[in-house]
């Protein structure tokens, strides 16, 4: 808890000092995308890393939020914030209903069912042309406005996204360090034992599934307003996989690790221009190598380093 609070504070500091050094809109756009994926990944980490339930369909919920915002604001001229809220509630309800049969499954079966859900959602985005604009999607999604400010520039949107992220990160830290957070980890470790201690296993799995879908939906809404258009392509299987990869590569046992994963997997292909054509190849290789040599992810590596340094200091002190 204490360590997470420190990391949260450090990140907050970073978010507000960074603009002193960053001036190019391009860097802001990368930071915004990192923030958006970061929000999804916060929720997904609680689902995957804490509750131990995989989802290969979260890009679908991400898209659900994006489309709700886009459709309600462009076709029904709803206020963007209201649209975001409606999308959030709708996604949570949808995830809850879909979760009831889905979360009864385990392991590979759960992975496949969530994958199937994600695929079907994406196909709906593509095919409900009258509502969603089909494969070309919807354009002219309006900007978000608040306090007389329009979040149109990359810099302004950067603050908006990262404030969202910081708030959700803070709430997530609270959640994982609570009675429910412990219960989730117990579920991921041994469902039978967790149940025998009075933990309502199915209900909590559903709860965290719906919450993580809610995070994805919020991120999707932000995404739609940022790009001011949506089409089905960012909401498919490969993005779902990318999201899971962020969680796992960062280190599914910690929230900050997952944020690190989101940053790395978003920034890497952007900044290494050489990678362009090699992106997929490198990306696949990273996944395999990480899982083989560092299954605890970056967070695991860092924790190991920290432990090592601590022990070394300890020894030094002992010798002195």
């Amino acid at each position: 808890m204490k360590r997470d609070a420190v990391i949260w504070a450090a990140l907050t500091l970073l978010v507000f000092t960074l603009p002193a050094f960053v001036h190019s809109p391009y860097y802001y756009s990368v930071l915004i995308i990192i923030g958006i994926f970061g929000i999804v990944v916060l929720g997904l980490t609680m689902l995957i890393g804490y509750a131990g339930q995989i989802s290969l369909g979260h890009a679908g919920f991400f898209g659900f939020g994006a489309y709700f915002s886009a459709v309600l604001t462009t076709r029904f001229h709803l206020d963007p914030w209201l649209a975001m809220l409606v999308g959030l509630v709708a996604t949570i309800v949808l995830a809850f209903l879909l979760g009831i049969p889905t979360l009864k499954l385990h392991g590979h079966y759960l992975a496949m069912a969530t994958l199937g859900l994600g695929m079907v959602l994406q196909i709906i985005f593509k095919e409900e042309v009258e509502l969603t604009g089909g494969p070309t999607g919807l354009t002219d999604v309006p900007h978000l406005k608040a306090f007389g400010m329009v979040f149109a520039s990359d810099q302004k949107f950067y603050f908006l996204v990262w404030i969202f992220l910081l708030v959700l990160y803070g709430l997530s830290i609270n959640l994982v360090h609570s009675r429910l957070g412990r219960a989730l980890r117990a579920i991921s470790s041994n469902q039978t034992a967790a149940g025998s201690l009075g933990i309502p296993v199915n209900r909590l799995k559903l709860l965290i599934f719906a919450v993580s879908a809610g995070y994805a939906s919020l991120a999707g809404s932000l995404y739609a307003h940022y790009l001011s258009f949506v089409n089905p392509s960012p909401f498919g299987f490969l993005v779902s996989v990318k999201l899971v990869a962020m969680v796992v590569i960062g280190g599914s046992q910690s929230l900050w690790g997952a944020l690190l994963g989101a940053g790395l997997l978003t920034a890497l292909p952007e900044f290494l221009a050489v990678l362009q054509d090699y992106e997929m190849l490198v990306y696949g290789a990273i996944l395999i190598v990480m899982m083989m040599f560092a299954p605890q992810g970056l967070a695991g590596i860092l924790a190991g380093l920290h432990e090592w340094v601590k022990n070394r200091d300890h020894k030094k002190n002992a010798q002195a």
């Binding site: 290969l56 992975a111 990869a245 696949g284 395999i288 083989m292």
Partner: peptide, 13 residues
């Protein structure tokens, strides 16, 4: 799951 997905992406890449 991640490893076989990684393999799939690698081969595709």
């Amino acid at each position: 799951i991640i490893i076989t997905i990684g393999g799939s992406i690698l081969l595709k890449g």
